[in-house]
């Protein structure tokens, strides 16, 4: 399938897709950001960010809108590459490999770092084909049976299988907003990434759908490293293990969530959390 020498990452995709994921030490660092500066043209939007996100944990980015948290999230799978005039300094390492080094394969990177967007964005195809898309283009399955299995598995992981198993052939647009978002999560899970980035995944959903997504996130950390951007502090408190607070493009505080919400180290964090600004 894939030659090992070509793989820029130390972790082999093949191993991950066949074997049960190995239990790694809990606070193994997965994603490391070092002295990151980010610019849109002449405007600097991120200033000297350094941050280490542990493996198999949920890390939340919070802060007022425009603080750069979404931009930072999108540097982790190089989604900002498609924005003209965007420029980055510093390093982003996943499993120790700098993903901005020359020769880095963006396609392969994005297979390992999945992303869920603010607004659900299913393709105008059937439910089944949506989940199968990543498997097909990346040629991750060898037979129709394997494809069916992995689609089902992904839908089950996304807690959607029971709701859609009888209508896999129907258009994805027929699903409710919350279901569409979970379909997008299933679509991302199907190709078995290591890291899942979520950009305010529940901001367009009603409270019940939001609750389902939150439960899902908590379960996902058993297997995946999750990074979530949210403007909802209660949500961050509910789902995350670590929280990073950003303000005006700067990282103000990064701590275990419990500490952040009980005794924040910074006055500014406390003001934000208690709703005094933002």
């Amino acid at each position: 399938m894939m030659t090992k020498a070509k793989l820029a990452m130390p972790v082999n995709l093949l191993e991950k897709s066949t074997a049960e994921p190995m239990k790694r030490p809990a606070l193994d660092s997965k994603v490391t950001i070092e002295q990151l500066n980010f610019f849109y043209g002449p405007v600097q939007v991120l200033f000297d960010i350094s941050l280490t996100m542990p493996s198999r944990r949920v890390t939340a980015f919070i802060g007022p809108s425009g603080c750069g948290k979404s931009t930072l999230l999108r540097t982790l799978n190089r989604m900002n590459d498609i924005i003209p005039h965007a420029r980055l300094q510093g390093r982003v390492k996943i499993d120790g490999t700098d993903i901005y080094q020359t020769g880095m394969d963006v396609v392969r990177l994005r297979q390992r770092v999945g992303m869920i967007f603010q607004k659900s964005n299913p393709f105008p195809r059937s439910i089944f084909e949506n989940v199968a898309y990543g498997l097909r283009i990346n040629q991750l399955v060898r037979s129709r049976r394997e494809l069916d299995e992995r689609v089902e598995q992904a839908l089950q992981q996304a807690a959607l299988w029971d709701e859609v198993k009888d209508r896999l052939k129907e258009s994805a647009f027929g699903l409710s907003g919350g279901q569409q978002q979970r379909l997008c999560i299933a679509r991302a899970l199907a190709i078995r990434p290591d890291v899942i980035l979520m950009d305010e995944p529940a901001s367009a959903l009603d409270p019940i759908a939001t609750q389902k997504i939150e439960e899902l996130i908590v379960r996902l950390k058993e297997e995946y490293t999750v990074v979530i951007v949210t403007h909802n502090m209660q949500q961050a408190a509910r789902v995350s293990d670590h929280t990073a607070f950003f303000w005006m493009g700067r990282l103000i505080e990064f701590d275990p969530t419990e500490k952040m919400f009980t005794k924040p180290a910074h006055q500014m964090t406390e003001d934000y959390i208690t709703g005094r600004f933002g």
Binding site: M2, V107, R108, Q139
Partner: peptide
């Protein structure tokens, strides 16, 4: 053939 290389071609 490496499938990824084929896709890139």
């Amino acid at each position: 053939i490496d499938p990824l290389r084929y896709r890139k071609v």
